[in-house]
């Protein structure tokens, strides 16, 4: 079986600035990959290319064997828009640094939104699934509250439940704990760890070295738009071979 996420020759520039410079990588099914790298090294851009919130200049990405953002006919790729792209995105869960919950809907409705509106699941089934997910992230008591009434850690856990409600094939996390006060980081990482143990394929951009060491199957260190070094955490984090990795880790750890 092919890897869950595959990228070949992924490039992206903003004006004169080359942010991604011909990246190749695979993420296996059930694998947890942590992306490390200095600020501005293109980690968020890479993640956003996977669900095409960002449109790469060159290269292809596939999720579960399906090219993202294109339809193949013969030996040509035709760019997808609207409904088809939306359908592809619904298979890819994304968790943002700033949660981005819908402030005008209750917690339960936030989690229901995707299933009911996008997947058109019957409300009763979707509701049952949503309640189970909220229970899983430890927020059973908050279903009727609005996002503004929750702590940052609670909001981020709702955001994870909201993404999971789509039954995604892969989950993307962009610095999910960076906006949180230190004492709230643990509860979010615990939920993510639980998810990883459950076999979810995950790509996580994070500065939590401890989490990467403990949960990641593989750590990718990127800088200047390329992958500088990758491998199991004990190798990349504890015995980095490249000087750039070493100096980055010395700064954050």
């Amino acid at each position: 079986m092919t890897a869950m996420v595959q990228a070949r020759g992924l490039s992206k520039s903003f004006g004169p600035l080359t942010v991604l410079d011909g990246l190749d990588f695979d993420v296996e099914r059930g694998e947890v990959v942590c992306l490390l790298g200095p600020s501005g090294s293109g980690k968020s851009t890479l993640l956003r290319c996977v669900n095409r919130l960002e449109r790469p200049d060159a290269g292809v990405i596939s999720v579960d064997g399906e090219i993202i953002g294109f339809r193949r006919s013969g030996d040509q790729l035709h760019e997808l828009r609207g409904k088809e792209l939306a359908r592809q995105r619904s298979n890819i869960g994304m968790v943002f640094q700033n949660f981005n919950l819908f402030p005008h809907r209750t917690i339960l409705d936030n989690v229901l939104e995707g299933a009911c509106v996008v997947k058109k699941e019957p409300r009763a089934t979707a509701r049952e699934h949503a309640l189970r997910l909220l229970d899983r992230v430890g927020l059973t008591g908050k279903v009727g509250a609005y996002p503004g009434q929750l702590s940052g850690g609670q909001q981020q856990r709702v955001a994870i439940a909201r993404a999971l409600a789509m039954r995604p094939k892969v989950m993307l996390f962009d610095e999910p704990t960076s906006a949180l006060d230190p004492e709230l980081v643990g509860e979010v990482l615990a939920v993510m760890k639980d998810l990883a143990c459950d076999g979810m394929t995950m790509i996580v951009v994070t500065h939590e070295i401890g989490f990467a060491r403990e949960v990641a199957d593989r750590v990718i260190f990127m800088d200047g738009g390329v992958i500088v070094e990758q491998g199991p955490p004990h190798q990349v984090i504890d015995r980095p071979r490249v000087e750039r990795t070493r100096s980055f880790l010395a700064r954050v750890a």
């Binding site: 669900n51 919130l53 939306a86 359908r87 592809q88 995105r89 619904s90 298979n91 890819i92 869960g93 994304m94 943002f96 981005n100 919950l101 819908f102 939104e113 995707g114 509106v117 996008v118 997947k119 909201r162 993404a163 789509m166």
Partner: peptide, 8 residues
């Protein structure tokens, strides 16, 4: 972005 990432 949140809406689009859900597939809306």
């Amino acid at each position: 972005e949140a809406a689009e990432s859900l597939g809306m």
